[in-house]
Structure formats: C-alpha cells, structure tokens
Design a protein around this nucleic acid. Structure first.
Length: 842
DNA sequence: CTCCTCTATCAA
DNA sequence: TGATAGAGGAGG
C-alpha cells in the first residue's frame, strides 16, 4: 500500500502529497488522517496522510517508507483532510497550514537531532575519541547520546571534530519527531485482578490496619484511584501504599490524566425554559431542518435580549437526542464564564470548551474529549469550527457579524464559510445568530426571502432540492421582541460639539455626568465603553507640531500613564515618556486623545468615591483575570465597568442601568468601507447591555457625528433602516455584497522593490486573465498602493485589491499569478500574502 | 523550508 | 587547480 503524505514544510513547492510505502508492520495503523513521521530529503519530518492508493505513479525504487505513526488513532477525520485541501485552494495557502490549524498546538511537531554512539563501536575508536576531545566525548558517552544542537552550542570549538566523527561512523545522527506536550501522567493505584485471600486480609487487619483501610477505600471506589488522592483522603504516607504494592495486593502505575479546566466547579443543572411564540417558531423550523439530514442555513435575527441562546440550547438538545453532535461558535471576547456556564449547566460533561485562555495542555485534553472521548457539544472560538466530530448535525455561529470569525493569519479562513463546507458534508444545519447581522449575511437572507415570495406569487412551489455541493439558501428567522416583552433601552445621542460650544470641556457630557451621579446615588451599575486603550492616542509638541511616532511603524505612539511609557500598539515598541519634545526640546509636549486609562482617572477626579474596574488588553493579560474582573463586577464590588469593546459583547448583569459610549466616532473614522457597519453593531451591542432585567436601562452615546446614519439608526434600534441606507453606500462603491474582494499584500524594507513587485504582480495577474475589465464590470484591479498603515516593523507594505463579480476561479488565478512571481519574491525576500474576502482593509 | 548540486568566478 | 559563493532545484 501507498500513502499520500503532506509533509511539514510550509512552502509552495512542497504543498502537494508525496508518496510513501506503508511497511507491513504499520499497515493496520496508517489511515487517511494519520499523523506520521516520514524521511524527507535527509530529514525526518511530520506529515499528514491525505490519501491511500494501491500503486504509485512514482518509480517504486524511489519510494521511501513511512517511519512511524505518531498517534494510536488518526487525529484528523477524512472529512477534515478533505476540508483542509479545499481550504488550501480556496484561501490560497499551503494545505499543510490548514490541516495544522485544525489540531491543538500540542500536536505541532517538535524535532530533535541526536548524536548517538553506536552500540557496536569498538574500544579502539572510543579511546581515540577520548584522546581527541575528552570533554565532547564525555558529554556524549554519559548517556550514550546527546542533543546535536546543544552539543554545537556547548562546544563551539569542536564542530569540526564532531563532523569528522560522524563521517567516520563513530557517531550516528538520529532524528526524532515528537509532540509539543505529553499526555499528563500521574501515579494511580489499581486493584489486582486476582481476589485477595482471606488469610492475607486477616493478617493485614492484625499487623497493618492502615493498609487494610487503603484496600477498603480502593474497593469502594469503582476503578483506579490517584495515589495523591488516596494519601490525602486517608491521611497516610506513600509508604503504606507502596507496602501493599510490594506484597502484590495492588498495583501502582502511571495513569493518563485528562486536564479539566472546569474541574471542581459545580454547574447547577438547568432545564428547558418556556419559549415565546416567536422563539418557538424559530426553534421548530431549525429542529425540522436538523431532522431532515440535509444541509440548511438559517439567519436567526433577534434583537439583543430576545433569547437566542435558549433556542440554541434546545435545538442542541434535540440534535443530541438524534445521535448527532453540535458545534457552537462564540466570539473569543464573549466566551465568558457566563456563556460557558449556560452550556455546562445544560449539557454537563458532554460539553468540551475550547478557547485561547486555556493552557496548551487543557486545550489538548478538551480536544481529545471531542475526538476520542465523550464530548458531543463543542463550544469555542473560531477554530472550534474544526471540532473533529463524525456525526455533526448542527453548527451555531453566535454573533455571526463579529470580525473575530475571520482568521487574520494564514490560513485566512472565515469560520462562516468553513461551517457551510462542513455542513454540506454532514447534511448538517448552520445557524447564524445576531442582533446586528453583517450586511453580506442579511443581504443573502433577504434575497432568498424575496425569491420565495416571488415564486409563491407566481404560484410555483419553491425549489427545495439543490444541486449537491452548492451552498444552501440562507433562510431568515426573526425575533422582534425581547423576552418578557422588556423594552429596549432608551438611547440618547449627545453632540459633543454642542457641549464644547456651551462651555463643557469635560470628556463627559452633562447628560452622562448626571447619569453617572444618579446611578451612584441609587447604587446601580454602569458600563462605559471607549474603544481605545492606553491613556492618550498620540503625543504632540505644541511648539513645533512634532508627533511622536514608532521608529519601526508608521503609526503614532500611545501614552500609557501607569507604566510611564509610550507604546506602539502594532509592534510592541516601548520607550519612556518624553519630558521634552524630541524635535525642538520644548517642554510643551502634550498628550492628546483619550484612552481608557484617562477615562478612569477622570472618573476618580469627578467622583472620588467611585469604584471602577478597567478592562482592556492591558488589564486582562493574565490568565483568568478577565473572569476575575467580571466576577468582582457581578458581586457589585464596583460601580463602573470601563473598557474597550470587550465590555460590549454578551455580558449580562442585572443591575446595569446605564451604558455610556464615551466616543462613538473612533471606529467611524477608520478608512474602511465597513466602518459604518462596525459602528452600528458596536453601538447596538453595547446598548443591549442595559436594562436586561427588571430595572429599565438608559444609554448615552457621545459623538461628534450625531447625524451619521450609523449613529442615528442605532439610537432608534432600527436595523432595517440602517441596512437599507448602508446597501446604497455599498452599491455606489461596488463594495460587498455587490462585489467580492481579494486583497494581495506584499511587504519589504525598501519601497523601490515594492514598486517593481507591484508592476510584476499586475503583469502576472493580467497573464492569468485577471486585469482591469471595467467595461464588462467583471474585475477591477485597484492598486498597487501603499496600505493604510504604510510601514509595520520596518517593512513597507503595499497592497493590490481585486474587486470582482462573476469572475470564476479567482483563487486559482491568484495562485497561478503569485506562483509565477515566486522566483522574484524569493530573491528579494518580499513577503506576499493573499486574503480572500478580507474583513479589515488595514 | 533545507539541503544538495551545479556553475561562475577568483586567487594561487 | 582548488576553493568558494550564489543560484536553482529537488524533496516520494
């Protein structure tokens, strides 16, 4: 048998399967999806088996054998292998990267090269090695082998000797492939298979009562017990247990432990809540779709607080009872303990949770629960869309408009697109949930609705059967009302230009100021949002106008007062806060713009007794700190939760009655065609944090653009009006959904190289038939132009945007074009990457 | 990506 | 003639 293997080299030239013979000993172990170690060139590499064949096209003499199989069962399913290859094509990236991104980091290969003394080496050779370089020899001889790289490091002068020894055969090189991480092992105590004789027990009772206690404990607990647990429970020493092991009355051995990030936490079981009629209708439709066993897509458009999560929970429950599995995607930011708790309390140990705040080991074990264990529901951020289920029935994407579903590194995939691909394979249902759907999603849903309406008006039965493999239509389910018919909070828009004109120079408008004072008096809570961390956004000299910039990026530095530093938010560059202007040495250097740190300081200035929790990247760096702050806020240990967008999403606190947006314009001013959409979504989401329970809520939005439609429509809770207005904007600029985009970015330390690269790229694209064809409106090639942040980490960045409509096979053509530039790119060390359907234009 | 080979070029 | 650097290509 032959295995087709994709090897662990992330380069264009090797992005294809290589054939290997499967040795008879491994025949039962190699499957599609297996992770194997294979000889490649003169190295030993990890690889993924992507196919099996009886014969190879290759000359059989040239075939090498698979070295070993790295896992007892294949970590990838054949479906995921197929998906990885699809991703490679669709997102113009090496399939290897796609396959790797499906697995927990613990399974990323770690390579070692060892220098080994051959067993059969004669005394004579050993003697001569000893004589030639005693230090080097001693180091290797101690264990018989030693890590090659650290040898070279420790004995830099001996590298020539080392090389010669290897040539002479006195040393052999051995390469290994291993995981990043081991399965966690701990000593555990197992009962013996043979029943214990009554005499022996009687003897124990007399001579060693403590040992008898151990046996009793072991008998009462079904199965093995951890040694540490036994010692703690009975207050004995390890010696007591060891004594029993010596007598053969029990066995102590290493047992594999599954780390559980939620161990020791009690989750109160919860049950189905009564659904409103709107919820019930949506639920019924989704449930029938899951039952049908065909791929379906739904957009669940429900206002904040309309009870989307309960619908998710109940449909998952039905999905499980049909013997199928479910994936729930949640934006990283809202994967809060609250969210996890809802799933844990409904499904208990059937849930595996995957997010970035788990340690590598914890994530690995949660993943193994899905692949080999008991989990039937996966809740997690973007990459959980790859949960290795085999009977997938339902994929839910909550807050589907969130940009975090798009991975910004290669493979630049969108979880929404991957979900559809998986649903097609499994005949599963995809549910996109949001109060503020992305324009593209909503447009697709409306288009389907309109087609249905037209079809029924014409008296036709709507077409239900689709050509297999094509994306199913997106059906719209709407929840217009909040549960318990609670009103949406009242939103006040404050024009900050007006405030200034009337002499208020504070960062708080009078309305917000009074709101805060009132809440403090009433002991209610508040959420304040400012989408900028740090203290100020830029540092400028008032004498000469000099703005302090990052020396490596074209971006101004942000002042962080607590640390007394100015920092670059792109490359992490840090310097001490300047006391004088670096340009003209004037003392008139000032900090402009407002960040969360400054808001915090102002709050304390105006309300001395106020208790503020600030949440941004700077305060939530540590593991678990996110959770810690939210718990403090829940326990009413603070009046204000102040933060960047991480406070806008998914939080639910009963006593929050005021939400304040310090500056609604931060996102609006970004040079991105989605900035209005992002603003509308952010405002609507954060407004939804108020008045979710008995107490009514109030929202204050401060802005310099009170007339902008994104602000106006958000204040009126009018998604439809916003959508209609935004669609006109998209149409006039031919932006998505009126077109599709592909962004090719390339970077280099020198601008002339980039200019030449740009010319070659345009030429290469034209050769593939991708060139400016404005007349037919098929493809538009924009650029190359400098990116909106022209330099990051000392590399200038240029980009080329393709805007196309009905142009088929664009990824294929881009790949062909960029492949033809390969030589040039390699020679000049130009980095180039392609982003299909980019979410951020920066 | 990394290693190997081939070729051009230069100094002895 | 041999050494060396750089480009090009292969890797099963």
């Amino acid at each position: 048998m032959i295995a087709n293997v994709i090897v662990d080299v992330p380069a264009k030239q090797t992005d294809r399967p290589f054939d290997y013979r499967i040795p008879p000993l491994l025949a039962d172990w190699v499957e599609v999806g297996s992770r194997v170690a294979v000889p490649f060139g003169n190295r030993l590499l990890q690889g993924f088996v992507v196919g099996m064949a009886d014969v190879s096209e290759m000359n059989p003499a040239k075939l090498k054998e698979i070295g070993s199989v790295l896992d007892p069962a294949p970590p990838l399913t054949s479906e995921l292998v197929k998906l990885g290859i699809w991703m490679g094509r669709e997102y113009v990236c090496p399939s290897l990267l796609a396959l790797q991104s499906m697995l927990p980091g613990a399974l990323k290969a770690k390579y070692k090269r060892l220098a080994v003394l051959p067993d059969e080496l004669d005394e004579d050779a050993r003697g001569r090695m000893q004589q030639e370089d005693s230090g080097l020899y001693a180091c290797i001889a101690r264990k018989g082998y030693y890590d090659l790289l650290s040898l070279i490091e420790q004995f830099p002068a001996s590298s020539a000797v080392l090389k010669r020894w290897m040539k002479l055969g006195w040393l052999e090189e051995q390469q290994t492939v291993s995981d990043r991480l081991r399965k966690k092992k701990q000593l555990a105590v197992y009962p013996t298979d043979v029943p214990l004789s009554p005499e022996a027990l009687a003897q124990l009772a007399r001579r060693a009562p403590r040992q008898l206690e151990v046996l009793d404990y072991l008998r009462d607990s079904s199965g093995p017990v951890l040694l540490s647990e036994l010692i703690a429970a009975l207050g004995i020493s390890a010696g007591t247990v060891k004594g029993l092991a010596d007598k053969g009355m029990l066995v102590i051995k290493q047992a594999e432990i599954w780390r559980d990030p939620y161990a020791g936490r009690q989750f109160k079981a919860s049950h189905r809540l009564q659904l409103t009629s709107e919820q019930q209708a949506a639920y019924d439709t989704i449930k029938h779709a899951v039952q049908s066993g065909d791929a379906h897509r739904f957009l669940l458009h429900g206002v904040t607080g309309s009870g989307k999560t309960e619908i998710y929970l109940q449909t998952i429950e039905d999905c499980l009872s049909m013997g199928k599995e479910a994936i729930v995607l949640v934006p990283e930011i809202s994967l809060t303990p609250q969210m996890v708790e809802r799933f844990k309390s409904r499904f208990g140990d059937l849930v595996a949770v995957l997010h970035s705040r788990l340690s590598q080991g914890e994530r690995y074990d949660e993943w193994r629960k899905i692949r080999y264990g008991t989990a039937q529901v996966a809740v997690g951020a973007r990459s959980a869309v790859f949960a290795p289920f085999t009977r997938l029935g339902l994929i839910i994407i909550d807050e589907e408009h969130e940009s975090s579903y798009k991975q910004e590194e290669s493979p630049k995939y969108h979880a929404r697109e991957v979900a559809v691909q998986r649903a097609l394979h499994h005949g599963a249902v995809v549910v996109l949930g949001s109060a503020t759907p992305s324009i593209e999603t909503y447009a697709a849903a409306l288009q389907h609705e309109q087609r249905e309406a037209a079809a029924s008006a014409a008296g036709e039965r709507s077409e239900r059967t689709l050509p297999s493999g094509s994306t199913p239509p997106l059906r719209l389910l709407t929840l217009k009302r909040r549960v318990m018919d609670r009103p949406l909070p009242q939103i006040h828009v404050v024009d900050m230009r007006e405030e200034l004109r009337e002499g208020n120079r504070m960062m708080f408008s009078r309305r917000l100021y009074e709101g805060i004072a009132k809440r403090l008096e009433r002991r209610e809570q508040m959420v304040l949002l400012l989408n900028r961390r740090g203290y100020s956004t830029f540092v400028m000299c008032r004498s000469c106008g000099y703005v302090v910039q990052c020396p490596h990026c074209d971006i101004s530095l942000t002042y962080h007062r607590r640390a007394g530093q100015i920092r670059c938010h792109y490359c992490g560059y840090t310097e001490k806060e300047p006391g004088e202007c670096p340009g003209c040495q004037s003392r008139h250097i000032r900090f402009f713009g407002t960040g969360t740190q400054k808001v915090e300081e102002e709050l304390y200035k105006h309300f001395p007794d106020i208790r503020v929790i600030r949440m941004d990247v700077d305060t939530t760096g540590e593991k678990g700190s996110h959770e810690k702050w939210l718990n403090l806020f829940r326990e009413k240990e603070a009046d204000v939760l102040l933060g960047t967008q991480m406070v806008a999403k998914g939080l639910d606190f009963p006593d929050v009655t005021l939400v304040g947006v310090i500056a609604a314009d931060t996102v609006l001013n970004l040079p991105d065609f989605r900035s209005a959409e992002k603003t509308f979504q952010l405002l609507t989401q954060v407004a939804g944090r108020a008045g979710r329970h008995e107490l009514p809520g109030e929202v204050v939005i401060q802005t310099y653009h009170p007339d902008h439609y994104s602000v106006e429509m958000a204040a009126k809770h009018d998604y439809s009006a916003f959508f209609a207005r935004e669609m006109r904007h998209r149409q006039s600029g031919l932006y998505p959904p009126y077109s599709r985009l592909a962004l090719i970015t390339f970077s280099h330390p020198d601008i002339p190289v980039l200019l030449q690269t740009g010319e070659r790229l345009i030429h290469a694209l034209a050769e593939q038939g991708v060139s400016e064809v404005r007349t037919s409106g098929r493809v538009e090639v924009l650029g190359p132009v400098a990116s909106s942040i022209p330099r990051i980490k000392d590399r200038y960045r240029f980009q080329c945007m393709l805007k196309y409509r009905h142009e088929p096979r664009i990824p294929e053509k881009i790949r062909a074009a960029t492949d033809s530039l390969d030589e040039w790119l390699k020679k000049h060390q130009v980095q180039l990457s392609t982003d299909m359907n980019p979410q951020v234009m920066l």
